[in-house]
């Protein structure tokens, strides 16, 4: 597919934003999935609902909440500025944060399902063989739910590639900084006669998602042996 240098820039930025978003949020997604799958604590239902908020709220509302929270005068933004001298507003890191939050519920769901599918009797067996809780986690639980983790990461990656509402509301639409694929498509849609650009960018979005899904399927097959499928 022939893209202009500018369009390649958009694609590269999208890949960077989504990649950093998913890698950054993966440990959190796993911890949340673990707590929801295994934890027996008060407030579990509440935590479950909170995690799913980005799935049910309009993305612009999430974007607006991020804007308020991360504004230089906002509760988190002021703190980040004072301690680290950084701001996420109008930065690609802000786009990555928005993408990560929108992808979180999908990732937690996929990982949680795979954790719940891990047979606790295998973990008991590991314990009787001398593995403590942490070793059991690393050597039994984690490898057994690896396909689910990969599936969650890929779903999240695909979701964050398509993230629009929260991003444009939070970090605006700045070419080269926050203008990811969907924002570039939106911008092109505002200009009559740019159907060719829209089609090319949309084609790239489709291609990236399909590639990610295929890659994850292959990966899961190799890791999980027989019967391990992402989709």
């Amino acid at each position: 597919m022939l893209l202009s240098a500018q369009e390649w820039g958009v694609v590269a930025l999208s890949a960077k934003v989504s990649g950093v978003a998913i890698l950054g949020v993966l440990p959190l997604a796993f911890a949340l999935a673990f707590a929801l799958a295994r934890g027996r604590f008060r407030g579990r239902v509440l935590l479950d609902a909170l995690v799913h908020l980005p799935l049910v709220l309009p993305p612009v509302v999430i974007g607006w909440m991020l804007l308020v929270a991360f504004a230089p005068a906002g509760p988190i933004g002021a703190w980040l500025w004072r301690l680290f001298g950084v701001t996420l507003l109008f930065r690609w890191t802000g786009a990555a944060l928005a993408a990560a939050i929108m992808a979180l519920p999908l990732m937690v769901r996929a990982i949680r399902l795979s954790l719940e599918a891990v047979d606790p009797r295998l973990e008991q067996a590991a314990r009787t063989l001398g593995a403590g809780p942490w070793a059991t986690f690393w050597r039994v639980t984690l490898p057994l739910c690896a396909p689910g983790i990969v599936a969650g990461a890929v779903l999240g990656f695909a979701r964050s590639l398509g993230e629009f509402g929260a991003t444009i509301t939070f970090v605006s639409n700045i070419p080269g900084e926050t203008q990811t694929l969907p924002l570039a498509i939106y911008a092109a849609l505002q200009v009559p006669g740019s159907d060719a650009t829209v089609l090319r960018l949309a084609g790239v979005a489709v291609l990236l998602s399909v590639l990610a899904l295929v890659a994850s399927e292959l990966l899961a097959r190799r890791q999980g042996g027989k019967g391990a499928h992402v989709l």
Binding site: A71, L89, T169, S172, N173, I174
Partner: peptide, 21 residues
């Protein structure tokens, strides 16, 4: 200049959040 196009309402809220523009 670096141009960011969005709905006026979205841009105004970003400015009111003290986004540096």
């Amino acid at each position: 200049p670096v141009l960011s196009f969005a709905a006026s309402s979205a841009l105004a809220r970003q400015i009111e959040a003290h986004a540096p523009a």
